[in-house]
Design a protein around this nucleic acid. Structure first.
Length: 282
DNA sequence: AAAAAATACAACCGCGTTCAG
DNA sequence: ACTGAACGCGGTTGTATTTTT
């Protein structure tokens, strides 16, 4: 048979993570390393599905995450990489240590897109907007022109309409045809514009850009007490300006992940032994 | 000061790919 | 070779916070 289901989805908690849940997950990963996510919730004593645990860890709890706004340099890199890779956020994130695909995606959608448009650059194609608009107009005008006779013959028998359709197809070159396809949703991309755990918040007031909402992020001061192996906490929480001063030093000063997951390989992980889910870090 | 609108981002959802059995 | 669960990714949503009216 295939693999076992990751969770039964019955009685599982959804929504924002609490500080207590974060504690449990961090405690478990620090002790056991990242193993099969299906087993994590049970072993860590969490009423979450493995997928949710993985997301929480990779996007928020991982100690090697940078927090705060992307620096100008990072932003330029994102723009450059996006022009080459498109919306492949995980690929882009792999070039930016300490940044997650989710973070980059959010930043792109909320900041960079607007900036580029203001600069007259189309965020999808990275071409000047004027050129993109011009390129879009031509095939559309041609389509409209060719659709006129189609509309006029709507009452005609189906055969006649099919003839018109094929005439329309023949009249467009490949680029125009593709542009129409794009505009009409045949392809995914339309042509026309239409603090990690604030690692260390010495108190719960974090900079507005990073501290939103969830109770989990508002109550993470416990995290500074954690003893991540070879990890030096940076005092992000005290950084009050927007220039990322003091933010991101972890990566810049330690160009490496904070621990080698392989270090955990020697640890015994008794996946079927519930007793192994109790640890004593806290 | 209150309400409405805009913003930011954590978390979820669904899909394609990978891989264990 | 086949089946189906796990995984990873990108798109979308929900909601707390901030800004504007």
């Amino acid at each position: 048979m295939g693999r076992q289901p990751c969770c039964d989805k019955v009685g599982l908690k959804k929504g924002p993570w609490t500080a207590e849940e974060d504690r449990k997950l961090i405690n478990f990963i620090l002790t056991n390393g990242q193993c099969c996510w299906r087993a994590v919730p049970k072993l860590a004593g969490l009423l979450r599905c493995g997928k949710s645990c993985r997301l929480r860890w990779t996007n928020y709890l991982r100690p090697d995450l940078k927090r705060g706004l992307l620096s100008d340099y990072e932003e330029k890199m994102v723009i450059d990489l996006h022009s080459q890779l498109g919306n492949r956020w995980s690929k882009i994130a792999s070039h930016l240590p300490g940044r997650t695909d989710n973070e980059i995606k959010n930043h792109w959608n909320t900041h960079i897109k607007k900036k580029l448009r203001k600069m007259g650059i189309d965020p999808l194609t990275h071409k000047p907007l004027s050129i993109v608009e011009q390129e879009d107009e031509e095939p559309l005008k041609k389509l409209q022109k060719n659709l006129m006779p189609l509309q006029e013959t709507m009452e005609q028998p189906l055969e006649d309409n099919i003839k018109n359709m094929s005439r329309l197809g023949e009249s467009l070159d490949d680029d125009q045809f593709m542009a129409i396809n794009l505009e009409y949703g045949v392809e995914d991309v339309p042509l026309i514009d239409p603090e990690s755990l604030e690692l260390i918040c010495s108190n719960s007031t974090m900079s507005s850009s990073t501290s939103t909402s969830s109770n989990s992020s508002n109550d993470s001061s416990f995290l500074k007490d954690l003893q991540f192996p070879d990890f030096e906490w940076s005092d992000y929480g005290n950084s009050s300006n927007d220039n990322n001063n003091g933010v991101g030093n972890i990566i810049e000063n330690n160009m490496m992940s904070l621990w080698d997951i392989d270090d955990f390989s020697s640890l015994d992980l008794l996946l079927n032994d519930e007793s192994s889910s109790t640890f004593g870090l806290f």
